[in-house]
Design a protein around this nucleic acid. Sequence first.
DNA 1: TAACTTTGATCGTACTCCGAACAAAGCTTC
DNA 2: GAAGCTTTGTTCGGAGTACGATCAAAGTTA
Lengths: 412, 412
Amino acid sequence: MSSNDFPKGVSRASNLADAVLRLIWVERQISRADIARRTGIARSTVSEIVATLLPTGLVAEVGVGVSRGGRRPIVLQFQDDAHFIVGIEVGAAHVGVVLMDLRGNTVAWNQRRFPVREDPEGTRGLMIEMAETIVAASKQDPRSLVGIGVAVPSPVDPKNPGALSEIVLPAWNGRSGFEVLQQKFGVPLWVDNDANLGALAEHWWGEGRGLSDFAYVKVATGVGSGHVISGEIYRGATGVAGEIGHMAIAPRRGPACMCGLRGCLTTMVGRDALRARTQELAASYPGSPLASGNGDAPRLEDAALKGDPLALAVVREAAEYLGIAMAGLINLMNPSMVILGGDLARLGDLVLDPLRETVRERTLVSSVSAAEIRTSELGPRSVAIGAATQVLKAALEDSRLFPTAPGRAEAS
Amino acid sequence: MSSNDFPKGVSRASNLADAVLRLIWVERQISRADIARRTGIARSTVSEIVATLLPTGLVAEVGVGVSRGGRRPIVLQFQDDAHFIVGIEVGAAHVGVVLMDLRGNTVAWNQRRFPVREDPEGTRGLMIEMAETIVAASKQDPRSLVGIGVAVPSPVDPKNPGALSEIVLPAWNGRSGFEVLQQKFGVPLWVDNDANLGALAEHWWGEGRGLSDFAYVKVATGVGSGHVISGEIYRGATGVAGEIGHMAIAPRRGPACMCGLRGCLTTMVGRDALRARTQELAASYPGSPLASGNGDAPRLEDAALKGDPLALAVVREAAEYLGIAMAGLINLMNPSMVILGGDLARLGDLVLDPLRETVRERTLVSSVSAAEIRTSELGPRSVAIGAATQVLKAALEDSRLFPTAPGRAEAS
DNA sequence: TAACTTTGATCGTACTCCGAACAAAGCTTC
DNA sequence: GAAGCTTTGTTCGGAGTACGATCAAAGTTA
């Protein structure tokens, strides 16, 4: 039985007002009468709610629409640039910061290499510095900042968002220490796992738009996956759902993984694995520019896009391993789509063709379990955008999070 | 972005009243003052709500409790036998019917073998007959029937609950035709997949009590799994989530499956597979009573429980295959528990030991991904109980479904 | 025995949301 | 082009919900 769900004390005032705001966000432009029709709320109530929304600046009247046989409606428009949000991606060896408006548009973007894994204190300092710079450069009023979202390369327990995995980031001692950001900027802070937030970005702005159940698999240094289930990010019993990277592909003969097992997907298709496999196969492809083995060698993806046979062989092999794991994912979770992100996504059909073939071989062939497989189009900013999006999502669910919301304690 | 979530037209009146009823159900006995404390609802409001609940018969005053330093509280008790629910399990070759009270207790239970797969019309007739018999024999007032829940061995699309998979049950032409039950008894009807409802039964009455994320794997003629995610049954994008039975264990060398693939889990550990494997190994175990191969041979599980080496070898092998699939499940979905149901569950540690070992070999060894593996204790009635439980769950979420609820259209 | 606590009921009130009524502003049709 | 109809948006009274204050009843504690 589900645990008791009584939010002790603070109970939201009007959920209708938030529902109306969300509808305006979704539709971008809509009239009061249309809101009443779409939601079933009385026209009079819609008018009252809109009257409270207008002074917040989130919604504005922007003209009149076409008549439906009577008086022409006043068009309400969601003001995408009423506020903005900072999204920060903390990677294993870099920090990326994005300034996003309320429609997912990137206002500004910056990225810096940094030894995140080894230097927690320095990372926090860099995050503050980069966030301050990007806010200042944007010439926006800092008071219109809604909040800060952070993506970390570690499982995050929603009940204890300040904690980090000591296994993935030992030097951080299990604590993020991101409270300093909250204090510095005076706005709320959200933290979640990078794969989850990549999936969230896909859900709001990418291939996953409109889908309620899909998976996002990111292949880069490591392999991770995020899952949207019933329209929500799934975190699992302990906040570590979607560890597809440690799914056992070759548990007996495969290479050892840092997690203590053998033949994990990460050890087969992660960046190091692909590099090692390239060297192994180099002898058979003496003409390949990748065979030189020194630092001048082109990136695997670039070589593959130019048709290099060695690169193509490595990619095809990786796609097959990936396909084995994805087939298991599809059988178990029945997503309507699997979105491939990370470095390999650039390769398009070069990776999708062998991937789809392997998956087809191993999944129930029936219309009900047909999951589409696609590559992400969001690019390298996707995780930072996802970090910002979790803030937008929270604010659209509880509009009091917007700085100008009515019923907030005014700064006097 | 999630689709619009406006329930057009009917909007529930008091959600608080239902929340109070649920709390009384969970606590079984509780005073008005305790309800106010636990929920944060004002004492006066609790009094008013309880006043509307008492005449429904769902709640009764049953004495006074111990004082906390003042007036002694009146103890309210949920009346488990105020109403009852019919749960029907439609299997591949049998029909089971259970009469359940509002606490999951079995009031009556009956089971009949029947060629369900071949005879849809006869199945529907048998369901009506068995349900009528069990209601009549229980000497309950038929008017206190809340509803009927049905479990079917086929994926069920929640948006189209009257449809059945034509692949699993070709003779049914994709339609259940269960509306006749609804008409016959004049109560609402719920239909869902059997593995989902097995998981639901575990969640409410079995090992899964209090867990918000766990998986239920049933091994019998076939292999299926149901998943509870965030406290809710997960159905997947097309209502077919949890097809663990068609996860590819040995996609190249394994036996062909009815689904068109090779080496599905079902073809390795399903009833037919275990029987075939027993025959294969019989030559090496001439002394085993299972080796005779005729109809007099004992059941595999019984032989294993008696220590027969042939049976143990077959079970151990099956447990290892099962472990491979479960490891994938655990890595991907991060349940806090996996519950094994079906025929093999009777074997306890005989199947759990090799299962746990295989899973341990293949899952990330960290505290965060440690899923317990247990066997179900609910026995053969679990799916029928689950079918009835989905009705109870619905009624506790919307108390207007109870026949005596206030605000219902009274039968004059 | 007096003082304090706890429980449960009653009553007035704030708030939310709805429907009815109305004015404004457009179509439609003869 | 004027009358009649539709649609939009606002105003206002009223139903319903939940809360806080108050009170009586029934305890415990000093």
